[in-house]
Amino acid sequence: MAKNRPAPIIHTERLLALVPYISAHQGIAIADLAKAFDVTTSQMSADLTTLWMCGLPGYTALELMDLSFESGFVTIRNAPTLKSPRTLNVEEVISLLLGLDLIKESLADNSQIAESISRLSKRLSEKAGVSANFRAHDPVSSTVRAEIENALSKQQTLEMTYHSLYSDSFTERRITPLELRVEAGIEYLFAYCHNAMAFRIFRLDRIQTLKVSTEKAVTIETDTLKNAGEVSAHISFASRARLMKERFGLDDAPLDVKVQVASFSRQWIIRSIFASAGSARLVEPVELGDEITEKAQLILDRYLAH
């Protein structure tokens, strides 16, 4: 599986895939076919012209495939040799195995479907001679993600039970989803929270339950989105750079460097400094630094008394 295969090879692969696809979708529009194969309409027309010349040796009308597409809709006849799709290669099998493993958990409640998934995985692994060395785990329930995507497209408001890691508590909230974002492997939902009457960012993996609210969605002015309660801080780092880099989402390697970190939560900053176990020092704002000292002293006293 070379990453950069020569153009004629990619082209041949597409031509071979086209015949069974058209056979299964007789009368498909050229534009739809182009979309399915992720090429332009003119490229698809060129492909079809090439295919039109292909067939069994002899290359007379009897041996050539009977391909018609002048009307803008494609039909194929007399192509029995290539009619069946090609067998899945090992990489394709692995992509499907990982995909099946990913959805398995979300479907665990449905035993019939869970059984189908196991059966399909087993059959695919055996066919391709792949062992069970490929696993995928979705930290986010794909039902939750589907609910949010649905709410986003319909502009619905949702009732949510959320576990806040910063305040370490469960809350019931009414939210209007605005945007899904992925940062450093973590999926976030940017939403308007009707309880806080402010914009909030939620981690998808902390959403416990979600359902569509019966109340009508409200329109939210997007120009008030900016700087929704952002706290910024100066932090300096001493060691354990990889962890610091990943925790604070920094691009450059910081070692004894002051950096500016913006966060929507003071709690997050305080907890992150603590969890950095002495490798990070908050320089500014000063009152946040005092809060950290106080908290550290409080915990320390408790340990010494215990």
């Binding site: 696809y21 899945l88 959805i103 986010v140 794909s142 039902t143 999926e187």
Partner: peptide, 22 residues
């Protein structure tokens, strides 16, 4: 594309609505 070329229609209604993401 190969799966769609088998000639068996995908029965989406038989499975729950999910949005898996790798």
């Amino acid at each position: 594309l190969k799966l769609k070329s088998i000639g068996i229609d995908s029965d989406i209604d038989s499975i729950p609505t999910l949005a898996p993401r790798m």
